[in-house]
C-alpha cells in the first residue's frame, strides 16, 4: 500500500472525480423525477456504470504495482476477447488464438518487471513474427492474410496500446514529483474521457457539419473543435499538478489527446460498422462493450506515453 505517500494532488483528483460523478448522479435522478415523460434509463445506467469504472480504476491505480498490472492485464484480456468475439475467425486457427491470448500475461509481466525494452518490442516484433509461423504450422492458407492481419491488429490495439497505461505506473516516480506514481496515468485517462464527453456536448449544442458521415454520423466539426479546446485548456491547467510537463508541453499534450482520442473513437466505430454491430459488446450497461469505453484510450495511451517519456524519462 502506498497510501501514506499519496500526493495531495492525487487525493484532490480522485475527490474531484467523485464530486463530478455525484453531481451527474443527482442530475440524472432529478431528470427522471421532473420529466417522467422522457426515458432516462440509459442515462441513469451510464452514470451508474461510471461509478463502477472509477472504482475499478482507483483500485487499479492506488493499491500497489502487482494489483495495477493484474487489473490492467485483465482489462486488456476483456477487450481482446470482445474483439475476437466480434471478428470472423477461422476454425483452423483455434490454437493460434490461444497463443495470441498468451501474449497478454507475458506482455504484462514485462510491465510488472519494468523492462521497457522488452515491453516495447514483444508484440510489435516477436508476436508479429511468431503468430504467422504458428498459423503456417496449421497449414490452412485460405484466408491467411486476413486472419493474421485481423489478429495482430487486435493484439496491437487491445493489448500493446492499452498496456502503455500500466507502464505509466512503473515509470520512476522521482521524475514526477507533483503527481507521483499515478499522476501521469490519471492525467491521461481524465483528459481522454473529458475529451469524449466535451466533444459530445459541444457537438450536441453547436454541431452541424459532419466530419465523417459514413463512419460516425454524430461527429461534427464544432464538437471536435470544442472538445479539443476544452481538453487543451484542462491539460494546461492540470499539467503542473499531475505531471512533470511545462505549460507549453501541457498544451501540446492536450492537443495530442484531443486529436488522438477522436481518431481512436472513429477507428473503433469503423470496426463496428464493418462488422455490422452498434455496440462492441454488453459488458458495461449504458455504454455498450468495453471497447466502446476504451476506444479513445487505445490511441491516446501510447501517443501520450511516448510524448511524456521522450520529454521527461
Amino acid at each position: 500500500m502506498n497510501w501514506p505517500i499519496l500526493p495531495l494532488s492525487i487525493q484532490i483528483a480522485f475527490l474531484s472525480v467523485g464530486i463530478l460523478l455525484a453531481l451527474s448522479s443527482l442530475i440524472s435522478i432529478a431528470l427522471v423525477k421532473t420529466r417522467p415523460e422522457r426515458n432516462y434509463r440509459e442515462l441513469r445506467q451510464r452514470v451508474r456504470t461510471w461509478w463502477f469504472i472509477v472504482g475499478i480504476f482507483a483500485l487499479a491505480v492506488l493499491v500497489n504495482r502487482t494489483v495495477s498490472v493484474v487489473l490492467f492485464g485483465f482489462i486488456s484480456f476483456l477487450a481482446f476477447k470482445e474483439y475476437l468475439s466480434l471478428i470472423p475467425t477461422r476454425r483452423a486457427d483455434h490454437r493460434v488464438l490461444f497463443w495470441a491470448y498468451l501474449a497478454i500475461p507475458i506482455q504484462f509481466y514485462w510491465v510488472w518487471h519494468g523492462w521497457y525494452g522488452m515491453f516495447i518490442i514483444f508484440i510489435p516484433v516477436y508476436m508479429f513474427l511468431l503468430l504467422p509461423m504458428r498459423m503456417i504450422l496449421v497449414g490452412e492458407t485460405q484466408g491467411f492474410l486476413k486472419a493474421i492481419g485481423t489478429l495482430h491488429w487486435g493484439l496491437m490495439i487491445t493489448v500493446f496500446n492499452l498496456s502503455h497505461m500500466a507502464f505509466m505506473l512503473v515509470l520512476p516516480p522521482e521524475n514526477n514529483p507533483a503527481g507521483g506514481v499515478a499522476g501521469l496515468l490519471l492525467y491521461l485517462v481524465f483528459l481522454t474521457e473529458i475529451n469524449d464527453i466535451a466533444q459530445y456536448v459541444w457537438g450536441k449544442s453547436f454541431g452541424r457539419r459532419k466530419i465523417s458521415p459514413k463512419v460516425s454520423p454524430n461527429k461534427t466539426v464544432a464538437g471536435f473543435l470544442g472538445g479539443l479546446l476544452t481538453t487543451t485548456m484542462l491539460a494546461i491547467a492540470l499539467a503542473p499538478w499531475l505531471t512533470p510537463l511545462t505549460s507549453g508541453e501541457g498544451a501540446a499534450a492536450g492537443l495530442l489527446i484531443g486529436v488522438a482520442g477522436f481518431v481512436g473513437d472513429v477507428t473503433i466505430s469503423a470496426l463496428k460498422r464493418d462488422i455490422g454491430v452498434k455496440d462492441s459488446g454488453s459488458l458495461l450497461p449504458g455504454h455498450g462493450g468495453i471497447l466502446d469505453r476504451l476506444d479513445s484510450l487505445t490511441y491516446t495511451a501510447p501517443l501520450f506515453f511516448h510524448f511524456a517519456y521522450y520529454l521527461h524519462y
Partner: peptide
C-alpha cells in the same frame, strides 16, 4: 452461439470467446 468456437469437439484447449 460461440461455444463451438471456444471448445469444439475434439479439442482440449479452451479459447475464450463471448
Amino acid at each position: 452461439y460461440g461455444l463451438g468456437k471456444s471448445l469444439p469437439k475434439g479439442e482440449i484447449i479452451l479459447v475464450p470467446f463471448i
